[in-house]
C-alpha cells in the first residue's frame, strides 16, 4: 500500500495548510463584505457617477479569470508600484476584490427586493436617507442576502486553490509538493479533495446556524 503510506506521510503537512486556506477564505470574504455592502447600497441609492464607477468595477472583476487577475497583481501591478506584498496578501486581495464584485450584486439584489416602500416609510417619519439605510434597509437586506451570500463561501473555498500558482502554502500547494516527493498523485489529490469537501460542509453548518439565528417571521425561511 504505497498510496496509503504516502497519504499518511503527507497528511500532517497537508493539514497544516488548512489554516492557510481558511485564512484566505475568511479574509477574502471579509474584504468582499466590507466593499460589497457599501457598493451594493451605493448602486441602489448613490448618484449616477458612483453607480457607473461601481458597474465598471463589477464588470471588470467578474470578467477576469481568477488566475489572470492573480498574475496581473503578482507579476505586474504590485511590483510596478514597488509594493513588496506576500503571496498570501496578494491572494487575499485578488479573491477579496472578485468576491466584492459578486457580493455587490448580491446586496444590490437584496435591497431591490425590499421594494421602495421601506425607504418611503422611513423618510416619512423623518429619518434621513442614511438613517433609513442603516436602521431599516440594511438589517432587512442583509438577512435576505444570506442565502445568496452563502454561495460565496464554497466559491471562495474552491477558488482559493488558484493561489497555488503563486506559491501560497495552502492545501493544494502542499498536496502538489507531496506528490512530487512521493509520486502518488491519485491518493494525495483525493486526500486534498476530501479536505475541501469537509471544509465546505463545516462552513455550510456555520452559515445555516447563522441563518437560523437571524430568522425573523416574514424575512427569510424557517429551517
Amino acid at each position: 500500500m504505497e498510496g496509503l503510506s504516502a497519504v499518511l506521510e503527507s497528511l500532517p503537512y497537508i493539514i497544516s495548510g488548512i489554516p492557510v486556506t481558511l485564512g484566505l477564505v475568511a479574509l477574502s470574504l471579509l474584504v468582499g463584505l466590507a466593499l460589497g455592502v457599501p457598493m451594493g447600497v451605493a448602486t441602489v441609492y448613490g448618484n449616477r457617477v458612483i453607480v457607473k464607477i461601481i458597474q465598471v468595477f463589477v464588470f471588470i472583476l467578474r470578467g477576469l479569470p481568477n488566475l489572470v487577475l492573480l498574475f496581473l497583481f503578482y507579476f505586474g501591478i504590485f511590483p510596478l508600484l514597488g509594493w513588496n506584498l506576500s503571496s498570501f496578501t496578494i491572494g487575499v486581495i485578488t479573491l477579496g476584490l472578485r468576491s466584492a464584485a459578486y457580493q455587490t450584486e448580491i446586496f444590490r439584489g437584496a435591497i431591490l427586493s425590499l421594494g421602495e416602500g421601506q425607504m418611503l416609510a422611513a423618510l416619512s417619519v423623518g429619518m434621513s436617507r442614511n438613517q433609513a439605510i442603516w436602521n431599516i434597509i440594511l438589517p432587512q437586506a442583509l438577512r435576505l442576502a444570506l442565502p445568496g451570500w452563502s454561495n460565496e463561501y464554497p466559491i471562495l473555498l474552491t477558488d482559493s486553490s488558484v493561489t497555488y500558482a503563486i506559491g501560497v502554502a495552502e492545501i493544494l500547494t502542499r498536496g502538489g509538493q507531496m506528490v512530487t516527493r512521493t509520486y502518488q498523485p491519485m491518493p494525495i489529490y483525493l486526500t486534498c479533495a476530501l479536505i475541501f469537501i469537509f471544509l465546505n460542509w463545516g462552513g455550510m453548518q456555520i452559515i445555516q446556524w447563522g441563518e437560523k439565528k437571524t430568522y425573523i417571521p416574514g424575512l427569510g425561511r424557517k429551517m
Partner: peptide, 20 residues
Amino acid sequence: NRFRQKIGMVFQNFYLFDHI
C-alpha cells in the same frame, strides 16, 4: 426631515418595517 416628522403618512400597503 424636520417637516416630515410633523406630517404623518399612512400608506396603502402599510410599509411597516418588516424586521422589527
